[in-house]
Design a protein around this nucleic acid. Structure first.
Length: 579
DNA sequence: CATCACGAAATT
DNA sequence: AATTTCGTGATG
């Protein structure tokens, strides 16, 4: 914690030399205990006190070559403190050197006062004119890539026109204010204090003591306690006016003098006007504190007089919630009323759509039970077919029809005998199909369905097989047919009409009905899957519809949108036909 | 008074 | 040599 020796708090000391345009409590500095007189001053890097250049015999020019400076008092107290000088663009400059000569340095030096905050930092931060080396911003090493300055940088693809350091890295103390983070929330008490000292000075030029006192009371009420609160946040003294003095002292000498002269001339005449101005200013600062960079803001919580947190508009989450609740109580009733004033077309359409969806769902369910029925029916047929006895003689009947006729397999394109075509193509297809996998990450979960998907887990690809179980050559083989098993395929007339009879050829030899059970089962299963999908889709639609309807007049929707009744007579916007 | 733009010093 | 970032004049 380094704190200023001379401070506003010190009150009036040695009022003899106090200038007319300065309040009586202006801070005093230096060995002479006189206030800042707009002349060049230098700050001690140990005690942080400011000294008039004239009083200690250091000119601004000389100061330019000083890197670290300690006052007489500090040097006598602590023998290790030495004034350190800069060297012309040399690297040793940063190291210790015993050169006690004040050298003139070539090139340009910014017109800031040679003030450093301690040797620690001088070593740590090289370019320190705009860096205190201690604040969060100075500690940052990476650009945010978000701010306008970053976006201007070449490394972020910018045109390099602005050429300024990342806003988040602009020193909280020494960087020019407009270069710091734009968001007022980042401004800390330090800046506020700077303002108060500045404002006091300016105000004192313009306002009577009474008014000034009022203004100060106002400020004290809002700011002083905050300083305490913020003090813990950073290790520096919350108030450090010297950090910013330079700009006022060195740069605006002429302007300030002119102004004070002018003020004296017109002081009496414009009393009234000034009072008005002052009132405006106070009101402005009350209202627009948040807009003003560096402004400390009051928590927006209802009835709360605490200071808002740095990155928030509120002092606590609680206050934020309170305001939000108030907002809802305030706005919601009106919105509900507005909402109820006009019929909601979307709601009505939604209801219709929902009805339709429900109807479709009902149909799909019916279809599903039908398919389940067919499933069991088929199993019955197959069971019955198994009981048939083999009739050896039938086999010969189908003997040789067209022996020289050939067809080609759809899978392997080899020419095959039509007699064995079905058998070949089935096997051929199974061979190729079993070489590929067809899976999903999730197992099938359909309640009430038997034997639908293969669902064999493949630990290698962590998937579940999504073929129909009955059709999956990858994970199931057709059972070996015993020699005495009958084909048993129900015979039909005119393709569809069952005759009630069954094929009684031995299964191994029947080329006509090869795998007929499998194909019939697959047919049913495929249809079942289709119906399940359809049902699933309808459920999804219903869910979406319901969510939309729930959200339509939900709290969030009502708070965010409102229905404006432009024409109170025609509330229903539909055409007559639609109604 | 803030912002933009840019030369140039400081730094890498 | 390239990059960073400072200070300052022009501008609105």
């Amino acid at each position: 914690m380094d704190s200023e020796v001379s401070d506003l708090d010190q009150g009036p000391v040695g009022g003899a030399e106090v200038r007319m345009d300065r309040p009586p409590h202006a801070p005093v500095y230096c060995v002479c205990r006189k206030p800042d007189s707009n002349c060049f001053m230098i700050g001690c890097d140990n005690c942080n006190e400011w000294f008039h250049g004239d009083c200690i015999g250091i000119s601004e020019k000389m100061a330019k070559s000083i890197r670290e400076w300690y006052c007489e008092k500090c040097r006598s107290k602590d023998g290790s403190l030495e004034i350190k000088y800069r060297q012309k663009k040399s690297k040793q400059d940063k190291d210790f050197e015993d050169d006690r000569m004040v050298r003139q340095r070539g090139g340009r030096t910014p017109d800031f006062m040679e003030r450093r905050r301690g040797s620690k930092q001088s070593v740590q931060v090289k370019r320190s004119a705009r860096m205190c080396g201690e604040c969060e911003a100075c500690m940052r090493t990476e650009d945010c890539a978000q701010c306008d300055f970053c976006k201007d940088m070449k490394k972020f693809g910018g045109p390099n026109k602005i050429r300024q350091k990342c806003r988040l890295r602009q020193c909280e103390v020494r960087a020019r204010k407009m270069l710091r983070v734009k968001d007022e929330e980042y401004y800390m008490s330090r800046d506020q204090d700077y303002y108060s000292s500045q404002d006091d000075r300016q105000l004192s030029d313009e306002f009577s003591e009474n008014e000034l006192e009022l203004y100060k009371q106002y400020r004290a009420g809002t700011y002083d306690e905050h300083n305490v609160a913020w003090g813990s946040d950073d290790e520096e003294a919350p108030y450090d006016p010297s950090q910013h003095k330079r700009a006022v002292k060195v740069k605006h000498v002429k302007r300030r003098e002119k102004r004070s002269e002018r003020k004296k001339e017109e002081s009496k005449v414009k009393q009234h006007k000034k009072k008005q101005k002052h009132r405006d200013k106070v009101r402005h600062s009350e209202r627009a504190e948040s807009k003003e960079p560096g402004g400390l803001r009051q928590c927006l919580g209802p009835g709360c007089v605490e200071m808002a947190r740095a990155t928030s508009k509120y002092c606590s989450d609680d206050c934020g919630m309170k305001l939000a609740a108030n907002r809802i109580y305030e706005i919601l009733p009106q919105r509900i009323q507005q909402w109820q004033q006009s019929p909601c077309i979307a709601e009505e359409q939604g209801k219709k759509l929902l009805e339709r969806i429900r109807r479709d769902q009902q149909q799909a369910r019916l279809r599903l039970t039908e398919m389940e029925r067919r499933f069991h029916e088929l199993e019955g047929i197959i069971g019955k077919a198994k009981q048939q006895t083999v009739q050896e003689d039938q086999e010969v009947n189908e003997g040789d029809d067209d022996t020289d006729f050939q067809i080609f397999c759809v899978s392997c394109s080899h020419p095959i005998n039509p007699k064995v075509a079905l058998r070949h193509m089935e096997r051929c297809y199974a061979k190729y199909e079993s070489q590929t996998s067809f899976g999903s990450m999730y197992p099938t979960r359909i309640e009430g369905a038997t034997r639908l998907f293969c669902d064999v887990y493949n630990p290698h690809s962590k998937t579940y097989c999504k073929r129909l179980q009955i059709l999956c050559p990858e994970h199931s083989r057709d059972p070996k047919v015993p020699a005495d098993e009958v084909c048993g395929c129900p015979l039909v007339r005119d393709v569809f009409e069952p005759t009630g009879e069954y094929c009684r050829v031995p299964k191994r030899k029947c080329n006509k009905h090869y795998c007929w059970e499998k194909l019939r089962r697959a047919e049913v299963d495929l249809e079942r899957v289709r119906v399940w999908y359809k049902l699933d889709e309808l459920f999804e639609q219903e869910r979406n519809m319901r969510t939309a309807m729930t959200n339509r007049a939900g709290l969030l929707a009502l708070m965010l949108h409102q229905t404006i009744q432009h024409d109170p007579v025609t509330t229903d916007l539909r055409t007559n036909k639609e109604r």
